[in-house]
Design a protein around this nucleic acid. Sequence first.
DNA 1: CCGGATATTGGAAGCGCTCCCAATATCTAT
DNA 2: ATAGATATTGGGAGCGCTTCCAATATCCGG
Lengths: 340, 340
Amino acid sequence: MSNLTLEDIAKQAGVSRSTVSRVVNDHPNVREEVRKRVKEVIRLTGYQPHAAARTLASQRSWMLGLVLPRSVSSFFADPYFPRLTQGIAQTCNQYNYTLGLFLISTKEDEETIFPRVSRKGLLDGILLQSDQLGDQLTEQVIQSHIPLVIIGRPFYNKDVSYIDVDNINGAFTAVSHLIRLGYQRIATITGVPTRTVSIDRKEGYIKALSERGRNIDESLIVEGDFTEAGGYYAMQKLMPHKPDAVFAASDIMAIGAMRAVREAGLRVPEDIAFVGFDDLPLATLPEPRLTTIRQPVYQFGVKAVEILLDLIENGIEPPRRIIMDTELIIRNSCGASRKK
Amino acid sequence: MSNLTLEDIAKQAGVSRSTVSRVVNDHPNVREEVRKRVKEVIRLTGYQPHAAARTLASQRSWMLGLVLPRSVSSFFADPYFPRLTQGIAQTCNQYNYTLGLFLISTKEDEETIFPRVSRKGLLDGILLQSDQLGDQLTEQVIQSHIPLVIIGRPFYNKDVSYIDVDNINGAFTAVSHLIRLGYQRIATITGVPTRTVSIDRKEGYIKALSERGRNIDESLIVEGDFTEAGGYYAMQKLMPHKPDAVFAASDIMAIGAMRAVREAGLRVPEDIAFVGFDDLPLATLPEPRLTTIRQPVYQFGVKAVEILLDLIENGIEPPRRIIMDTELIIRNSCGASRKK
DNA sequence: CCGGATATTGGAAGCGCTCCCAATATCTAT
DNA sequence: ATAGATATTGGGAGCGCTTCCAATATCCGG
């Protein structure tokens, strides 16, 4: 491996260190002929600039951090985060940034994470998943004035940049779809109440019913926790109240809930119709294939990085806000094909 | 945030830059009283050493890279890689390393990845998933002499450190289990033949049959591709040959295959028994719950990082090799409970 | 062909840290 | 009390790059 420095290249090309630097960084003001000569030397020698030296001198690390709090690390079981990460990683590649991954798995991690991510000279910007109530870390990162994009709608701090999916409208669309199909007792399985994503999807549910003049029946609203098991138990609580349709705030809960329905000897969608949220690939395979709200997860990651780069280039004020649209994917768990 | 340097802290504590550096890095040879005083100043000011400066001076970046090639980025749909990543990330945290994530998603990424990961002064070591035939990148990274641990058994280059699961033995155990249960026509759905994981699992299958004096019936060996759909189609090819049991080289293929069986009006395990490989959480929920070979995925990640750190500390020679054991998890897709 | 504008180049001063080495302070056994 | 050993401290020379600034080369119109 070459342990070449700028100096070495300069010598070999018969120019100064500065000129080589200009060539490496595509600065203008280098004679075309010289540029070519230097590039040739670089190619031949396999020279690579030293990342840390560059960072130290330029005060830019060309590295972004993706921070996923503990609450979501269990979520890693569902493909949402992998997919998001892919979008983010791919976009980092594209803009020539390195991606640092910070997963908070344990209680201890939680305490050491802030110094890690805020370490001077490490990250140019941070992507932080955060829609939890009372998230310490988010506070700290905001205070630190590192360019930051929050993934998900944060609980407080209205003056921070964030990107979210239009959960309210997505849920609204899902429930409206069920109403349109003529269901009368539409229930919902919500997520944990400490996350904005749960709150927003529940709000969309309520809004859809209210706008059609339906009453909100509290016994048809049951709390889940975004897991399969959570959906299963929620459904067991729900069944005595005889819903004819269920809007589950996530596909994985819908899957659990449908399992409960099946075990109770009922059928989907004939006895109880379902709409989920997320559009997990695996929800489309077994019958009944799940009608759901699709989120543009990958694009979400792309956009998140682009906003962060914007923040880095042009300053963090004013905060940027992006809400991305969702899409209703009609399959057959909602009974649409049957009722038609 | 504080733009303090060592110098500033030194001044405030009334000592020299060197002494502060010693305190920060827990060097011995600092009077206890002085150490305490300096630490107090650091605490009060919130001083953090500049990562790049430290890297430049010490030639250590305290950063590891995890590189996942294209072939696996689609795999991100199954929880294997997320789980592995979690183990790796967690272990990096523990040893105070930063984790850089390099996902190769596109053809272009493939070409730009090597300069990215081999950039001087960026990574202290690399974890590279690689069990593909003809992997350019692996070659290049090996040549570069950066400390490297390959995840999976590499195709060539026997003189490189790697860590793998005992695929041969895992498959052997799975198939032996089916033999023990009395099945006569045991088929297998393999993975793509260009990966060592597929080769090894197939070898285990063959070995188990051979050791019991069974003939290998080529019509009972069908190639899949580690996807649900691949399992489904493989099973369709297999059914005309009337297998009474199938060892699928991955759970996700087993799931696809069982779907094909179900659609053909047959039952699992009564008509065809199944054993998978991986122990995906989602394979344990719907009936029949999949009997499978469990891999210690998380521990795998932990171990991979530990080996890499060993390489960094103590040199890359001789290559380290770790093969981790698997475990047979008996559920009911294999008919064990029925047959007793 | 000349003066001033413009394009190109080199030199030097850092960026903030580590680490070697020399200097000083402190200790030990006589 | 003293020489010699040992513990502690400070100074300085980089690590390899960027970037400002001054110096030089090149160009233009009149």
